[in-house]
Structure formats: structure tokens, C-alpha cells
Amino acid sequence: MTEYKLVVVGAGGVGKSALTIQLIQNHFVDEYDPTIEDSYRKQVVIDGETCLLDILDTAGQEEYSAMRDQYMRTGEGFLCVFAINNTKSFEDIHHYREQIKRVKDSEDVPMVLVGNKCDLPSRTVDTKQAQDLARSYGIPFIETSAKTRQGVDDAFYTLVREIRKHKEKMSKDGKKKKKKSKTKCVIM
């Protein structure tokens, strides 16, 4: 069974824990209790493949930012979460993405942009803004509501699919490099 290491990042209060708990335990946590770091595991079937999701729910508070490099190193894919009623959390996505790329030393890291709290009427981040940002990053965008469960499975499952595509691409690139290195030079 394939294991996928997913990391949920975003500013404090955007609903990272609520999304994760909704996926794992099928219930909505409405009281806000700032996370330092929590880890969850769940076995699911995605596109006919049974897999184990190892999900790291991270601290959004700035005082825990020193811990970010460590979990970013171990993560295979990242859910970059903002709240649709919090423009600052949307603007912060850029910083999370840049930090992930720096730590992973790669421009090509599996990510999904997630606009959470889409059940709320007080939207300050337009869907088109988020779609445009995701398009500019070359990553999928999904709106979710941890409260109603809308888009929750889709967000995590899409990230797994992005990781699969990335692994497939990397193995193809690896095979191309191996083929090239088999060419021999004969000096007579």
C-alpha cells in the first residue's frame, strides 16, 4: 500500500485542523484551538488504489514558523489553505509557496490551493482571484467548507493525484537520464 505524506499549511484560523478532522473523523470542530502540530493517518481508496494518507496539520501562528522547514522537508505534497473571508490569509499563500519551493529546492512541488469556509456569506476573496492565482502557479484550486464537508475529500484526493503525477514524471525523467548515460565512448 502506497503511503502519501501530505502537509496542510496556511495562516492561523483558516480551518486547516477543521478540514483535516472532517476528512479523518467526519465531524466539524467549530471551536478554535490553535494547533502546534498534529499528525493523522487514514486509509482510503483513490482511483481504485488503496493508500495510506499521513497528514500533518501544522501551526499557522507566526511564533511556530521555525518548525516549518522541518515538516516541509518531509512532506510530499501540500494543501495551501486560505479562508475566503480573510484576504490576508490569501496573500500569505505566496509566502508559504515560496518557502516550500526553497526548502524542497524545487520549482515543481505537488500543491493544491484550497479556499476554505465557502459556506460563509462574508467572502472577501473572489473565486476568480483564487483561480487566477492557482493557474499562475500551475496547481489545482478547490473551494471547501469544513463545516458542510463540501470539497473536503476532493481537496485531499486531488493532492494525492498531483503527487502521483509528480512521481510518474520524475521516474520518466530518471529513465531518460539513465538511457543517456548508457551511451559509451570508444577510443581507438
Rank of each mutant, 00 (worst) to 15 (best):
C118G: 10
D154I: 07
P110W: 00
K167R: 10
M170K: 13
V160W: 06
E162N: 13
P121I: 09
H94R: 15
A18Q: 04
T74Y: 15
K117F: 14
Y40C: 01
R164I: 13
L79K: 03
T183K: 14
I142C: 14
K177S: 13
T127A: 10
F156K: 01
T35L: 00
G15S: 10
L79T: 03
M111S: 01
G10S: 06
E62M: 14
R97Q: 11
Q22W: 02
F82Y: 11
M111Y: 02
A59G: 14
Y71H: 15
Y71W: 15
C185T: 12
S39Y: 01
M170I: 04
V81N: 04
S136V: 10
G13P: 15
D57Q: 00
R68I: 15
G115T: 11
L113P: 03
I100R: 04
I84Q: 14
E162L: 08
A18G: 05
T124A: 11
I100H: 08
Q43A: 01
S39R: 00
Q22A: 06
E107P: 04
D69P: 01
N116C: 15
Q70E: 02
A11E: 15
L133K: 09
C185H: 15
C51T: 06
K169H: 14
Y71P: 12
E37V: 01
K128L: 08
V44W: 13
T183Y: 03
K172V: 11
V9F: 14
A66W: 04
V114L: 11
D153E: 13
R135C: 10
V45W: 03
A83M: 05
K101Q: 08
A59I: 15
T35D: 00
E76W: 06
A11C: 14
G10Y: 02
E162Y: 08
K182W: 03
G115F: 12
I24Y: 05
S65Y: 06
D173R: 08
V152N: 09
I46Y: 08
S145G: 09
A155E: 02
V103A: 04
I100L: 15
Y32M: 01
E62H: 08
R123S: 13
V152W: 04
F156M: 10
G10A: 11
Q150C: 11
D108F: 10
T2P: 06
D132R: 08
V14Y: 13
S17P: 12
R68E: 15
K178Q: 15
G115Q: 07
V125S: 09
T50P: 15
E162P: 01
E76V: 11
Y32F: 01
N116V: 15
M67S: 02
F78W: 02
V44M: 03
Q150N: 09
S65I: 13
V14F: 12
I84S: 14
A83G: 13
A11H: 07
L6Y: 05
M72N: 14
R135D: 14
G60Q: 05
D38Y: 04
S145Y: 06
V112S: 01
I55F: 02
K117W: 15
S39L: 11
D119S: 07
N86D: 14
T158S: 08
G115Y: 10
K104E: 05
N86A: 07
Q70C: 01
G48P: 13
Y96G: 05
V29P: 04
T50N: 02
A59C: 15
G12N: 11
S17C: 02
T74A: 15
V29A: 06
I100F: 08
T2A: 07
V112D: 03
A130Q: 07
F141I: 07
L133M: 12
T58A: 06
G15I: 09
G60N: 04
D108R: 08
P121A: 11
K169T: 03
L120V: 12
L56V: 02
K16P: 05
M67R: 00
D33S: 06
I24R: 01
D108G: 07
H166R: 09
C118S: 11
P110D: 01
T183M: 08
T183P: 06
E31Q: 03
G138R: 14
V125H: 11
T158V: 10
G75S: 04
Q22R: 03
D30I: 06
G10T: 02
R73G: 05
E76K: 03
Q43V: 02
R123K: 11
Y157W: 06
L6Q: 02
V114M: 12
A18T: 05
S17Q: 04
V45N: 10
L79A: 09
A83F: 03
L53W: 03
G138D: 06
H27W: 15
T127W: 07
Y64K: 01
Q70G: 01
I46N: 06
E3N: 11
N86V: 04
Y157I: 09
S136D: 14
Q70I: 00
D132I: 08
D105T: 06
N116Y: 02
F141Y: 14
K5Q: 14
H27P: 00
K175L: 05
D132Y: 07
K179E: 11
K88W: 09
G77Y: 14
G10D: 04
I24L: 09
S136L: 12
A155T: 11
K128A: 10
A155S: 12
D57W: 00
D54W: 01
P34H: 00
K175M: 12
I24T: 10
G13M: 11
K117C: 14
R123G: 13
D92V: 04
A130Y: 13
R123H: 11
R68T: 15
P34R: 00
F141L: 06
S17N: 00
T74H: 15
K177M: 07
V186R: 01
M72R: 01
V152S: 06
E37C: 01
G115A: 12
C80Y: 14
T74R: 05
L23M: 06
K16E: 04
S145L: 02
K184L: 01
L19P: 01
T127E: 09
K175C: 06
V44D: 02
D33F: 14
S122Q: 13
G75N: 03
P121G: 13
T74P: 15
K182Q: 14
Q43P: 02
N116K: 03
I55A: 06
F28L: 01
A66D: 05
A66K: 01
E31M: 03
H27Q: 11
C80E: 01
L19G: 12
I100G: 01
R123N: 13
R135A: 09
K165L: 13
I55D: 00
Q129F: 10
V112W: 01
M72P: 08
V109N: 05
G75H: 02
S122E: 12
Q70F: 03
E31S: 02
Y32N: 01
I46V: 05
T158I: 14
D38W: 15
R135T: 11
G10W: 05
H166F: 09
N26S: 12
K177A: 08
K178H: 11
C185L: 03
Q129H: 09
R73D: 07
V160F: 06
V7S: 11
K5L: 03
K169E: 10
E98H: 07
I139T: 06
Q70W: 06
S39C: 12
K101F: 08
G10C: 01
G60T: 02
C118H: 12
I187T: 14
A59K: 00
Y4C: 06
A18K: 06
K178L: 05
L159Y: 03
V125M: 10
V29H: 09
K176I: 08
V44Y: 02
S17Y: 03
L56S: 01
K172T: 14
I36L: 15
S106Y: 12
Q131E: 11
A83V: 02
I55T: 10
E62G: 05
V8F: 01
L23V: 04
K128V: 08
I187D: 15
E62D: 12
A66I: 15
T127I: 10
V186S: 14
E162H: 14
V186G: 13
V9D: 03
G75M: 13
L133Q: 09
A11V: 06
C185V: 05
T127D: 12
M111R: 02
D57M: 00
S181L: 10
N26L: 13
K184W: 09
D57E: 01
I100S: 03
Y64L: 15
A59T: 15
Q129W: 12
F82R: 01
K180A: 08
C118E: 13
Y96N: 03
M72F: 15
L159P: 15
G13K: 08
Y40T: 00
M170R: 15
I21F: 07
L159Q: 03
I84E: 15
G12Q: 01
D54G: 01
C51P: 05
V9W: 14
Q70L: 00
L19Q: 12
D132H: 11
D47R: 04
Q43L: 01
